[in-house]
Design a protein around this nucleic acid. Structure first.
Length: 475
RNA sequence: GGCGACGUGGCCAAGUGGUAAGGCAGUGGACUGCAAAUCCACCAUUCACCAGUUCGACUCUGGUCGUCGCCUCCA
């Protein structure tokens, strides 16, 4: 039975969908004005694993993740500049060109990391009518008020505001750096619609004049549009729980009178030397740069080695550890090959069953991927031992299927080296044969020279029992 | 100031009221022509600190110290 930590109740709860077997999941997507960094990677890998695991459990999941291509300001006062517009000026492009460019970059990085595409990736600018409708409803129900060309949500009309983040009461003023817009009735009130200045490029006509939607509105509008008024799971980064998700709850619940989200999930941050990796500190590492130095699957495994609700401190040492672990998994998978199915031995069936049981036990416990990986590594040792003895093709097939299902299908860690397909695979076999031949004839100097040259070219040599050698590209 | 999270071996990282998974690194051994890979063995009497509850706590309660996040856009 899967249990998930619900930020709203501050405890792990058994997961049951509203309308089984269907599950609606909404995850806050990126604002597309820059390339993705490791922090995005951790977040979206975590939720990708949630999706994969739900599907492994045979739920029919609809996964919606927005693309924010408008509307967020550089600061809380109305004076802030649209971030896309700012980046557009910098790059001398249209805001929509910026959105296109970084949306493509985002998808490319996520594909490389092995994340499945969301079923729907709605753009905020494509849902302005839905957002305007939502504001109208809030007006009708007395939760919104107008101040000039701006429209605000009246927080005092929604008593549950602050429940998710534990910020009850209105004394959020002391010690904060919030610059309160002076046309708000209450400092906690937040914008639903903002009047656009003359030089603002991204703007739309509305009942309240030309403007653009508030910062929190798009997620409410798009989540409800595609997943209904009550959605099963809403995910996002921890830093979004307040104010973003708090405001989403207020808007959506006030508009429909129904519970908006049943399970709130928040993933923790990537840190660098203990400090949050983020755009404001400028201490971020871009995924595309990371991929130059590390195989994307190393990065993925590195992320999975810590729990999604724990912070992950970025270090080369950690990445190196993940790399060794990945090599271990790859090595076993490659030893198993691609054999025919059949009737495996009892010991193999037993091992496979135990492994899957342990794996599921960890995953059921709020997606404990470090625990799930431990089960996999124990399987690797046991599998290697079995391979030392007499194993049938059916045994190997059975073990290979398990690895493919748990490591690749559920955790998304690709274990086939598709990079070495075709001709290079043939070359590796020929060179492996050559080293075997040289060793058999005790031409060790020549054999070792070949090994050294291959190492320099990025290939590892492994002498197998029986005199042949295996050549594989390094990761 | 308010809200919240965390503190486990050299590093990373799980965990249960009944006596510490796993990975990396390290050491010794088997195997090898030598390596690598693989396997075997070793590697925290101890889980920030101090009290308390308990037959028994790393796990529950209270306190102390430390680190971090949010309260402004941010995954």
């Amino acid at each position: 039975m899967l249990s998930l930590y619900n930020t709203m109740t501050r405890q792990k709860q058994e997961f049951t969908p509203l309308d089984p077997p269907f599950v609606g999941v909404y995850v806050c997507g990126p604002t597309v004005y820059g390339h993705s960094h490791l922090g995005h990677g951790k977040s979206y890998v975590s939720f990708d694993v949630l999706l994969r695991y739900l599907r492994y459990l045979d739920y029919k999941v609809r996964y919606v993740q927005n693309i924010t291509d408008v509307g967020h300001l550089t600061d809380d006062a109305d004076s802030g500049e649209d971030k896309l517009q700012k980046q557009a000026k910098l790059e001398k492009l249209e805001p929509m060109e910026i959105a296109e460019k970084y949306t493509a970059s985002y998808f490319h990085d996520m594909d490389t990391l092995g994340n499945l595409r969301p079923d729907i990736s709605p753009r905020a600018t494509g849902h302005i009518p839905e957002q305007i409708e939502l504001i109208k409803t809030l007006f009708e129900k007395g939760h919104a008020y107008q101040a000039g060309g701006n429209v605000y949500f009246d927080v005092s009309s929604f008593p549950d505001y602050g429940k998710l983040s534990g910020r009850i009461g209105d004394d959020q003023k002391s010690g904060t750096r919030v610059c309160v817009a002076d046309d708000k009735r209450d400092p906690r009130d937040f914008a639903l619609w903002l009047e656009a200045s003359r030089d603002h490029i991204l703007k739309w006509n509305s009942p309240w004049g030309w403007g653009y939607p508030g910062w929190h509105l798009e997620c409410s509008a798009m989540a409800m549009r595609y997943l209904g008024e009550t959605i099963d799971i809403h995910g996002g980064g921890l830093e979004n729980s307040f104010p973003h998700h708090e405001c989403e709850i207020a808007q959506s619940t006030a508009a429909t009178g129904k519970e908006f989200v049943r399970y709130w999930m928040h993933n923790n941050m990537v840190t660098v030397d203990g400090r949050k990796m983020g755009k404001s500190l400028g201490n971020f590492t871009l995924l595309r740069d990371l991929f130059q130095r590390w195989d994307p699957m190393v990065v993925r495994l590195y992320i999975l080695r810590s729990h999604y609700r724990s912070p992950l401190d970025f270090s080369d040492e950690g990445l190196a550890g993940a790399k060794s672990g990945l090599e271990r998994l790859l090595s076993l998978r490659s030893r198993l090959g691609d054999p025919e199915a059949g009737a495996p031995a009892r010991a193999v069936l037993e091992l496979v069953r135990e492994t899957e049981k342990d794996f599921r036990k960890s995953m059921d416990d709020d997606l404990n991927t470090p625990g799930a990986l431990a089960a996999l590594f124990e399987f690797v040792r046991a599998g290697n031992i079995l391979l030392e003895g007499n194993t049938s093709e059916a045994d190997k097939q059975c073990m290979a299927v398990l690895l493919d299902r748990l490591a690749t299908e559920v955790l998304g860690v690709e274990l086939t080296s598709e990079s070495s397909g075709g001709s290079s695979e043939d070359l590796c076999r020929i060179l492996g044969g050559l080293r075997g031949y040289l060793r058999k004839n005790r031409l060790f100097q020549e054999a070792d020279k070949l090994r050294d040259d291959l190492a320099e070219a990025g290939f590892s040599v492994r002498d197998l029992p029986g005199g042949v050698s295996e050549v594989t590209p390094d990761i």
